[in-house]
Amino acid sequence: MQRVNMIMAESPGLITICLLGYLLSAECTVFLDHENANKILNRPKRYNSGKLEEFVQGNLERECMEEKCSFEEAREVFENTERTTEFWKQYVDGDQCESNPCLNGGSCKDDINSYECWCPFGFEGKNCELDVTCNIKNGRCEQFCKNSADNKVVCSCTEGYRLAENQKSCEPAVPFPCGRVSVSQTSKLTRAETVFPDVDYVNSTEAETILDNITQSTQSFNDFTRVVGGEDAKPGQFPWQVVLNGKVDAFCGGSIVNEKWIVTAAHCVETGVKITVVAGEHNIEETEHTEQKRNVIRIIPHHNYNAAINKYNHDIALLELDEPLVLNSYVTPICIADKEYTNIFLKFGSGYVSGWGRVFHKGRSALVLQYLRVPLVDRATCLRSTKFTIYNNMFCAGFHEGGRDSCQGDSGGPHVTEVEGTSFLTGIISWGEECAMKGKYGIYTKVSRYVNWIKEKTKLT
């Protein structure tokens, strides 16, 4: 034993070699072989497995989906700052455009905790909710729209109204504003409101030439003092309507412009014939205590009207009353817009006519005020429907199939267009061939041609 100890002390290297040989010859039971080890760690190889990531292109799944990435790591994937920024906006807080917040056709661009709407022409605001041009839906104005110097929408209202708090709607500024039905039992019968379409306001006024200088022999019209197929109006439903009495009662109609003036057809009036105007009328054979009678003290036909040349060209006249009318729910003026808007309103496509005229061709006159909704007829169809001249200051309205029309005794009465609950004068009943005849239409004086003249002559002093 002493000898062994001496050998170990003198030859430590020998001992180490012996131990190493023993270990190498022993069977290893701690580690699995290569094949079995792979069965336990069965993990798919990654895209760049075996390579240094710093030297390969980034992978979106590896960089940002398996674990949260930084902007720089995302930049490695896209290799483009702009594309990385677009991805980053949604990656950080989701897609803010998912709810489609942009209105009126706006395009949404996502941002971090926010979004941006790219608005089409005519709109602005956070969600493109603000109209900035009158060309689109009248700028959301209830009545009139004008573009300011910086191309912003400025709404306005006709006389007797003021802008509401929203700067879009119009509200009454006087007790009985024009064009409004205020009798409670008839307010439910107000005709369907007309909503502004998209309009090209630059070209809204037709490029028409008034044929002022045409000389033409007097034409022989049949029954051209021209509501057939209409309905009984309720008291106060058309408070701007008046009836004219002269040699015979209810020979023509008219509309209240203001307390002192009536507008009617020029062919209705004769110099030297006494005319009485009755406002607030409903049943011409009954006294309903809503009527107001006034005498006409002055007749002003349009300066281009000449019955000797043509009885229905420039067929418009103004009547001055001896005493002002007292405005109330049964006696209310009709609204008159400017030339541009009167023309736009007419193009809405349908209007209402009213009167006490004959209820059928050569038949009896109506006792109760009649009204009828009539569609506008395109000019080409209008011209083809008659052998008589249709001037540019006239328009056609009615039904091709016949059966409904204005008729004798309705002449001078109103053709009105309702705009968001307020009625505007767009025409004056003038003439036609018979009444409600198939293929024939009622012919009306186009008020847009005469609004400046009306307003100039009827100013209240």
Rank of each mutant, 00 (worst) to 15 (best):
L24G: 04
E323L: 08
G402Q: 15
L369C: 03
G412K: 03
V277W: 00
N328Y: 00
K446L: 03
T84H: 07
G125T: 00
Y305C: 01
G439L: 03
Q2H: 07
V181Y: 07
Q57T: 05
A317W: 00
R3A: 13
Y441E: 00
V377P: 02
T445G: 02
N310V: 03
A164E: 05
H267W: 03
Q96C: 04
S406A: 09
L211E: 06
K459Q: 15
F78Y: 15
S99I: 08
N127L: 05
R449L: 10
V228I: 14
V30R: 14
N166R: 02
Q2M: 13
I390T: 09
F424T: 00
R294C: 00
H267C: 03
I136C: 03
D338T: 11
R358L: 06
N100E: 09
V419E: 02
T16G: 11
S430W: 03
T158V: 12
Q2D: 07
V326Q: 14
E129V: 02
V416D: 01
V92C: 04
T190I: 14
V242S: 02
S423R: 09
R43M: 12
V243R: 10
A436W: 06
S187F: 13
C252D: 00
V227I: 12
N306E: 05
D198E: 10
I316T: 00
H282F: 08
E72H: 10
E165M: 12
G402H: 06
G398F: 03
R140K: 14
Q241M: 15
G50C: 04
L346A: 03
V227G: 15
C18Y: 04
E171V: 09
Q408P: 10
P414H: 14
G421R: 08
C102L: 00
G272Q: 07
A436P: 09
R43D: 09
V243Q: 07
S49W: 08
A250H: 12
C119I: 00
G442H: 14
Y441N: 03
G363I: 06
K152G: 12
K438E: 14
E320Y: 03
D95F: 06
D200N: 09
G160M: 02
E433C: 07
K440M: 05
E231T: 13
W261T: 02
E98I: 09
V326H: 11
R180T: 04
F360P: 09
V202T: 14
E259L: 04
K152M: 11
V227S: 14
T84A: 12
D315A: 02
T458Y: 02
H267F: 02
C28R: 03
E286I: 13
T458R: 02
G409D: 05
L460K: 12
L425S: 00
H267G: 04
S220R: 06
Y444T: 01
D110T: 11
V183Q: 13
T194E: 13
L460N: 08
A337L: 00
L32M: 15
F176Q: 06
G122V: 01
I297D: 03
P177V: 04
G122Q: 04
H314N: 12
H303I: 06
N36L: 07
R294E: 01
W356E: 02
A279S: 03
G403K: 14
D410Y: 08
Y115C: 00
V153F: 08
T186K: 14
E208R: 11
N113R: 11
S156D: 09
M437E: 11
L189E: 13
F123V: 04
I7G: 15
N166I: 02
Q90N: 15
A233P: 06
K459Y: 08
S187I: 12
D322Y: 02
S169H: 06
M6Q: 10
I136V: 09
P120W: 02
I428V: 09
G403L: 10
K387C: 03
L211I: 13
N5T: 12
E285R: 12
W240E: 00
R404D: 15
K234A: 11
F424N: 01
C141L: 00
T271K: 11
L319S: 00
C28N: 03
R3H: 09
T225I: 14
N295T: 10
Q216R: 05
L425Y: 00
L211S: 13
R404E: 06
K274A: 08
K152Y: 10
C108V: 01
K45E: 15
V257L: 06
I344Q: 09
N313A: 13
D410E: 15
C108W: 00
N328D: 08
A366Y: 09
R62P: 13
A307N: 07
G122R: 04
G272H: 12
R294K: 03
N328Q: 02
G398S: 04
Q185D: 14
G253V: 14
R449H: 15
F238T: 04
F123D: 00
P177R: 01
E208Q: 07
N48W: 10
Y450D: 02
T225Q: 13
N38R: 11
T417H: 02
L346G: 02
V451K: 03
T81H: 11
I40A: 15
K274T: 10
L41N: 13
C382S: 02
L376E: 03
